[in-house]
Design a protein around this nucleic acid. Structure first.
Lengths: 196, 196
DNA sequence: CTAACTAAGTTCCAAATTGAACTTGACTAC
DNA sequence: GTAGTCAAGTTCAATTTGGAACTTAGTTAG
């Protein structure tokens, strides 16, 4: 219910739920076209469609969990970054990343860190040659999957999309993390988060 | 390292890692501007920035986990939908949703289902009045947070963005779930996934 | 009608996740 | 110097998660 312009609503006159049944649910239509937050849904849904098969493939092919591969990818782009940086930019909590780093180090994908114990201060993480090789082998799969995702768009449209999305992300500093409407959002509590 | 045009690279001459330290990491810059998958990063990162505070707020205010609220939201848009539909459109696995539905039912947010046990066939889930009330109370917060996210864009730009994103999602049927490059991706294995 | 097949939903339990404490180290003020 | 503060990283324990097996029903073939 909840809105007009539903995708389908004929068939039998009883009050049954309409459902194409074979494939994509009615619900997808509703979430796309009757959603009060259409942009949010689109980014979430596309992220899902993009990430799921890629990380499943990474898992099957290299035995790396998503957060582990994220570490590799992050360091490939920003060598010498810290676990905190990866946490901030990926949303995985720092203890999850701590374990990921430890495992990747054991697997020889990261350079050995000098100071391991306790914690202390910022650790610059670096890919080993093996780690960089892994990245180089895999990145093109990610790239071409993004390419595939953008197939419906012309070159020019992609450029526009890139610019608009960039604007939104750059502007995010202003809004990120203060809730609207909700009067007294006490700031003493730090949000967790994730991504997937 | 890893690329030119790095954000900052002066300071002390030693081989230290450059880092603004105070706030946003260098790594974010790298992921934005030297990323082979710039679109994928943007949707993932924006999803993170959007979802995290909202679901933290939901949790604090109503004691509902993300997947539980997702059930509410989904049914508000597509009443009579099934757990499977929610799974397909949100990425949460069906057993997680099964538990969520059970709890929401106990909390009186969903209408009682007639057939509970075992499973069997498609169950049409429906919000109770209480559930719909909860949705109505919360949806505006989600809406205005999306609004905030899009602040940097003009009305016209938002329209364009909407259309481009729609094109991509609609085209997704074609590419979703077949991996590129990887020759023999056996299809007998079903990908899991999530969203957040 | 019965058997076989398919798929939604549930249950189970081993494994993963993450909040909370803790450790460690740097930086600051005195 | 020393005390105090702050934040990165680690560890621990309790909860949560989700793959796999199972149950239940509808649907189809014989």
């Amino acid at each position: 219910m909840s809105a007009p312009s539903g995708a389908s609503e004929q068939k039998n006159g009883t009050s049954e739920i309409t459902q194409d049944s074979d494939d994509l649910p009615d619900m997808l239509d509703a979430k796309l076209w009757q959603n009060p937050c259409p942009f949010s849904f689109r980014i979430n849904y596309l992220s899902l469609l993009y990430n799921t098969p890629l990380y499943a493939w990474i898992q099957d092919t290299y035995g790396l969990k998503r957060h582990e591969y994220v570490v590799i990818y992050s360091l490939a782009l920003a060598d010498g970054g810290s676990a905190r940086d990866i946490s901030r930019t990926s949303g995985f909590p720092k203890n999850t990343l701590s374990r990921a780093v430890k495992r990747l180090e054991m697997m020889g994908l990261l350079e050995e860190r000098s100071k391991a114990p306790g914690g202390g201060r910022r650790q610059a993480l670096r890919l080993s040659d093996k780690g960089r090789k892994l990245f180089n082998e895999t990145v093109s799969v990610f790239e071409s999957y993004e390419e595939k995702m953008l197939t419906p768009l012309s070159k020019g449209e992609r450029q526009i999309l890139f610019e608009l999305m960039s604007k939104v992300v750059v502007g995010a500093e202003d809004w990120a993390d203060d809730l609207p409407q909700t009067g007294a959002t006490d700031s003493t509590k730090n949000a967790k988060g994730e991504m997937r």
